[in-house]
């Protein structure tokens, strides 16, 4: 398996082997400015919770300009991990039911109280009918991430995956490290793609960039 490219987007920077959009500020301001600078027309972005925005935007940067973008496909999985689950949005939802005298539970907030919604947002945007799954770990453990994503390729349909660590503790503190991984043996000097092998060392290096 080969890592074709990666993006690391955090509250204050974006690091990638792909072209990175201009941005200003930090936290939610960074997300909005980078989204605007990338020139994507996708009004639904503004309805997403911060976890989804971070995962969505990092994936947009990862895939921008790639061949056959938006052609429906079933062979690409979206497999993401984090440690805070959807707690940031969970807290927002709690506020809508905190006061019995002002009890207005919000469906638009509630729907994001599941961490896997971000995988659905990415699948919807890119027309991926493949596997989508979300795992919660105590920490960004390269061993678990490497094993679970590698195991996902046991599905005979799956030939590539968007995968990585997408975590959000509050609306200004988030981290999205996404990889495009393909089911082919890594060859140095390969004619197509390049990249690096999908293994614990490389995952750790990119997570720590």
């Amino acid at each position: 398996m080969t890592i074709r490219s990666y993006v690391k987007l955090t509250s204050d920077r974006i690091v990638s082997d792909r072209p990175v959009p201009c941005f200003s500020g930090t936290g939610r301001e960074l997300l909005l400015s980078a989204f605007r600078a990338s020139g994507i027309s996708y009004p639904k972005f503004h309805k997403m919770d911060t976890l989804s925005k971070a995962g969505f935007l990092a994936t947009e940067i990862l895939l921008e300009g790639s061949d056959g973008r938006f052609v429906p496909r079933e062979d690409r999985a979206v497999i993401l991990f984090n440690s805070a689950s959807s707690l940031c949005d969970d807290r927002h939802y709690c506020k809508t039911i905190a006061d019995p005298g002002n009890w207005f539970p919000s469906p638009a907030v509630f729907v994001y109280t599941l961490p896997n919604i971000v995988t659905g947002e990415i699948a919807i945007r890119n027309k991926y009918y493949g596997e989508t799954c979300f795992y919660v770990l105590p920490e960004p453990d390269p061993e678990s991430i490497c094993r679970i994503v590698s195991d996902a390729f046991q599905d005979r349909m799956t030939s590539s995956a968007i995968c990585g660590w997408v975590d959000c503790t509050d609306d200004d503190t988030f981290e999205a490290v996404v990889f495009l991984v393909e089911d082919c043996i890594y060859e140095e000097n390969a004619l197509h793609g390049g990249g690096m092998p999908w293994n614990m060392e490389n995952i750790r290096t990119i997570l720590n960039k």
Binding site: P43, K47, F104, P105, S106, P107, A108, V111
Partner: peptide, 15 residues
């Protein structure tokens, strides 16, 4: 271009 979640949110808004 609103969707079903927007419709539910509109119901909350009205109340």
């Amino acid at each position: 271009g609103l969707d079903s979640i927007d419709a539910l949110e509109l119901i909350v808004l009205l109340e």
